[in-house]
Design a protein around this nucleic acid. Structure first.
Lengths: 211, 211
DNA sequence: CGTTCTAGTTCGAACGCTCATTCTATGTTA
DNA sequence: TAACATAGAATGAGCGTTCGAACTAGAACG
């Protein structure tokens, strides 16, 4: 046994878990949470049917793990944005990258599946909403700092509305990837950049807030 | 037999079909296309298990019918908007109504289920994309007419981009209904109206088109 | 060094259940 | 009577999950 096995979760079982999650992500993306079967996931992960239950209590636990894994990526992105040196430039870059990421059919299929499941499975709904709150708060901080550094008002309700609006735009891309697949038009890309950068700099029509 | 029975589809079987679709819509909304079973749908529709197969070839045909039914509502809305007397006022009204409709958890749950299914079921994907194309074209005509009557350019690529952008916004609300349920904030509603009405009147940065 | 022990892995058969679908028999109605 | 409407049992496949036995490899011991 190598040195790493001193860790409470041995590296072997960690690897096995990752292997299962990778296979499950693939199957869920192709067949949906309920369309994909445990035996499919096992086959893809290269292990026997029952063995999966040494790593996950049941199928729902695998779903929950996948959901958490995917949503933690979002958190990472907002955290990176907030920590960036030149926020305005990073925002513009993230805006463009986000469009392509959310329009990618594989990414979109899994996220849509997660949201659809969230609309009926309370456990998934809770995970989704927790992640949403974190992302939202992180973005609010980022936008508030940008506005302050630009000498604009920092009306809380307005900033929250802006963040909610941006999130809605990006969530919409997930649906667009199915309704209208393929590369986004130049006009759409231009609109994303323009609207987001314009709105960040738009004074609140609601009230001033402390500047 | 009453007079209506001269029709190729008797009113009785029409009613039965509608009954099944109503029950199926309910079950699909609550459990998803694959989570809901035929026997659940039968129970809710008040008929025996096998009897459903006199009206639909199989489960997928029921799904397809539900998808078509729901998407035809979208087509109706865009058609109404295009036929309106005062397009600008009707647009503003539709914009507000659309926000609430797409945020309604029941509406959103079914539409998300449809889109998620569309990302893996080619038949559903085709129906979704057909409806999308019709809606898109209808909206393009509407926006072009508005811009012409306002003396603006009618650059085709720009108008298509605008329509795509609006659609993305409304699609995003479906996802928001899960991620952040509850009444939308006043700021978000204001942003929807403001951005849509502003953009419709924004000159194309791409080229003039024939005015 | 070789043997035994132990705890963690892994397999695959088995279980009970539910699913979508089919079939046959029985009303029902014009 | 002829055609349609309906019920409900039957079918076979596949599901998620459990279980006991086999395998593996390092630890402890003589």
């Amino acid at each position: 046994m190598n040195a790493a096995c001193n860790s409470p979760e041995s590296s072997r079982s960690e690897a096995r878990r990752a292997q299962i999650l990778g296979a499950a992500r693939d199957c869920f993306r192709r067949h949906g949470f309920h369309g994909a079967s445990i035996s499919q996931i096992c086959r893809q992960a290269g292990m026997s049917a029952g063995h999966i239950y040494h790593y996950f209590d049941n199928k729902e636990a695998i779903i929950a793990a996948i959901v958490e894994q995917d949503l933690s990526r979002l958190l990472t992105m907002t955290a990176e944005l907030r920590a960036a040196e030149d926020i305005e430039q990073t925002l513009a870059q993230c805006a463009a990258e986000g469009v392509h990421e959310n329009l990618d059919p594989d990414t979109a299929a899994l996220r849509l599946e997660i949201v659809a499941e969230g609309s009926r499975n309370p456990r998934v709904a809770e995970i989704v909403r927790d992640a949403e709150r974190c992302c939202h708060d992180s973005m609010v901080v980022t936008v508030r700092e940008m506005r302050r550094s630009l000498g604009l008002d920092t009306d809380e309700a307005w900033i929250e509305g802006l963040v909610e609006f941006f999130a809605t735009l990006y969530d919409g891309l997930l649906v667009r990837s199915v309704r209208n697949p393929g590369e986004p038009s130049a006009a759409l890309l231009a609109l994303f950049s323009k609207v987001i950068l314009d709105l960040v700099k738009t004074p609140s029509p609601l009230g001033p807030g402390k500047p």
